[in-house]
């Protein structure tokens, strides 16, 4: 196969810039950025309130959790934007019009992905700018690891974006895509939060314990063990923790995992769209 066939080419870049133009002209992305930064601000403000109450605070990186959660908000909403755009294009027929021309599923989805990744990158840079200003404002310790965390957050956005695009293709119609999307976000987050909550509630634990709560926790734990390797949120959380603990190799493995997940999900989405076609299966 020639490189020309593998690379999405000029059409993808045109679609990417088209996505960029449409997105930055709307107010939606700015509301998303505001929501993400607001999440970060609330968490950082909580830390300063703790400091005022406790009079002293020992922290490795007070910006880590705010940035991570801002990234989760960004991932969800950018994923939703992308998913809705593709589902609406399929629904409305504008996608079919593109496919009459030189565009194919590979180029279209690559273009959309690149477009939204660009938006994700710009959003991550906005978070970086916000973080640096917050550092100066509150006199927080500057930390080079912040860049590493933001790289992981960007890769999390990419991986979740790829998942969102696959959801849009599988859903077909905008209504189905929203339902699948909400379900995916709910499952990914609820298992992650549920497992950690129950782990905190039930200290220790024996492998042979068979009471009801332990069983629920075992189920959650087992699902979470799988999700640890699949959920972009979970992988990024682990990567951020590894970065914080200085486990650089594991941090890099987490990032590689996110890149691999992005590529695999994108390939699935492209193959599915190519197989299904813009008019759907009859």
């Amino acid at each position: 196969m020639s490189s020309k066939k593998i690379l999405p080419g000029r059409e993808a870049s045109v679609i990417a810039s088209h996505i960029g133009q449409l997105t930055w002209r709307g107010i939606g992305i700015f509301i998303i950025l505001f929501s993400a930064l607001l999440t970060g601000a609330v968490l950082l403000n909580n830390s300063t309130r703790f400091l005022e109450k406790n009079l002293v605070l020992v922290d490795k990186e007070p910006l880590f959790l705010p940035i991570y959660l801002s990234g989760v908000v960004l991932s969800i909403f950018i994923g939703l934007l992308a998913s809705m755009r593709v589902a609406r294009e399929l629904d409305k027929g504008t996608l079919e019009l593109l496919f009459y021309g030189p565009v194919e599923s590979r180029q279209y989805l690559s273009g959309v992905a690149i477009g939204y990744m660009g938006i994700g990158l710009a959003s991550v840079l906005v978070i970086l700018f916000w973080a640096k200003l917050s550092e100066m404002l509150l006199n927080l310790a500057p930390d080079a690891k912040l860049f590493g965390l933001l790289l992981s957050v960007f890769l999390m956005i990419c991986a979740f974006l790829a998942l969102s695009l696959l959801i849009a293709i599988l859903g077909g119609k905008a209504r189905n895509a929203i339902a699948y999307f909400v379900l995916a976000v709910f499952l990914l987050l609820s298992f992650q939060i549920g497992d950690s909550l129950l782990s905190t509630l039930l200290l220790g634990g024996s492998a042979t314990a068979t009471d009801a709560l332990s069983l629920v926790r075992k189920i959650l734990y087992s699902v979470n063990e799988v999700l640890r390797w699949l959920s972009p949120f979970q992988i990024t959380f682990e990567a951020a923790q590894n970065l914080n603990h200085g486990a650089i190799t594991k941090y890099l493995i987490g990032n590689i995992l996110l890149i691999a997940e992005t590529l695999i999900l994108m390939t699935f989405a492209i193959l599915r769209l190519a197989g299904k076609g813009v008019r759907g299966e009859r």
Binding site: R10, H18, G26, K92, L98, Y100
Partner: peptide
């Protein structure tokens, strides 16, 4: 292609829309 039922990006202007297709078709 001029299809019978055409769909457009309603949030774009005509100029922007044609510019997009112009770039797409190089």
């Amino acid at each position: 292609v001029v299809a019978e039922y055409q769909t457009f990006y309603d949030e774009m202007t005509a100029r922007e829309y044609l510019d997009f297709f112009g770039r797409l078709y190089q």
